[in-house]
Every structure is written in structure tokens, then in C-alpha cells.
């Protein structure tokens, strides 16, 4: 892929996947959201500018089995930090194809999430990087990294799917 020849069809497909993922998360459609992930998926929300989640603390660093546990926990209805669930509305913008990695499409975007809880409104903003893979059943996510603008500061509870 070069700057001069953006594959418009690919961009549209990637955008549609990213928007669907955002909507499923906003709507707490846990099963639908979980079904987007590949078996080798990594869901990562770093706590700083770190590039190494194997030696540094992260806010979230889930492999596929921990994604499953996170979802099962939410589905119990007794995940108190999401009972009742947050009311969410997120905007995903600046979607851009960044290249490919081992056959997967890498895309970037900015996200702004408004979360409403009894605590009040909380604004979450960050830079997302998606690793996306086309398979027999359509597009899936092999990776999602969310670098929050305030990742290194004290954060309120973030128990919804960011």
C-alpha cells in the first residue's frame, strides 16, 4: 500500500469493522464483541508510553483466554463496576490504514468515549491501533491497542469495553 494508491474498498471495509466494534462495545453486546476476536488476539491498554507489556504494568493486557474471562465476568451481571452498565457513546475518527504486519491489516484511529455513571460523566480519549484479519467468515480483530491520553495519570474505574 502506498500513499498514492489508497485501496478505497479496503478502507471502507476496515472502517465498517471498526465502527461495528465500537457500537457492540457501547451497547454491551458482549457476545457480539467477543466474536470479533481471533484466537491469537491481544487486547492492550498500556499505562504509559511503554512498549513492553511483559515487564511493565498495563491497564489491560488480555490474551484471548483473558478476554473470555472478562466477558464471562460481565455476563454474570454481578460485575459491580458494570452493574448497572455504564451508558456509553463513542466516536471513532481519523481512520487510517497504516500498513500490514504478517498478512494482517494495521489501522489507526482516534477514539473519544463519553461514559455516564452515578459518579458523573467521564471522558476517555485515546489513540487506537487495530490489527485486522480477513478470514472465511469475514473480518476479525487480532489486536487492539488503546493508548489513552491520560494513561499515566490517576484514572477512574474503567470496567466497560474500551
Amino acid at each position: 500500500m502506498t500513499m498514492g494508491a489508497v485501496d478505497v474498498e479496503l478502507v471502507r471495509e476496515v472502517e465498517q469493522l471498526i465502527y461495528r466494534e465500537a457500537r457492540l462495545a457501547d451497547e454491551h453486546d458482549y457476545a457480539g464483541w467477543e466474536a470479533l476476536w481471533t484466537d491469537d488476539a491481544v487486547y492492550w491498554v498500556p499505562a504509559s508510553d511503554t512498549t513492553d507489556p511483559t515487564t511493565q504494568m498495563s491497564i489491560i493486557h488480555d490474551n484471548r483466554s483473558r478476554i473470555r474471562i472478562r466477558i464471562r465476568q460481565l455476563e454474570t451481571g454481578k460485575r459491580h463496576a458494570q452493574a448497572p452498565p455504564s451508558r456509553l457513546c463513542r466516536t471513532v475518527t481519523n481512520v487510517e490504514l497504516l500498513g500490514d504486519r504478517d498478512g494482517d491489516v494495521v489501522a489507526g484511529a482516534n477514539v473519544l468515549v463519553v461514559e455516564s455513571r452515578e459518579r458523573g460523566l467521564t471522558l476517555w480519549a485515546g489513540r487506537c491501533e487495530y490489527r485486522l484479519r480477513r478470514g472465511d467468515e469475514g473480518w476479525r480483530m487480532a489486536g487492539k491497542t488503546v493508548r489513552l491520553v491520560d494513561a499515566d495519570r490517576a484514572l477512574h474505574t474503567l470496567a466497560f469495553l474500551i
Partner: peptide, 14 residues
Amino acid sequence: TIGSVGPAGLLLAD
């Protein structure tokens, strides 16, 4: 630790 604690921790968020 990452799984359990912090703002998104499976234990500490609750």
C-alpha cells in the same frame, strides 16, 4: 497483577 488490579482489574474495579 495486571489482570486483577487497577482501573480495569477483574478484582479491583469492583
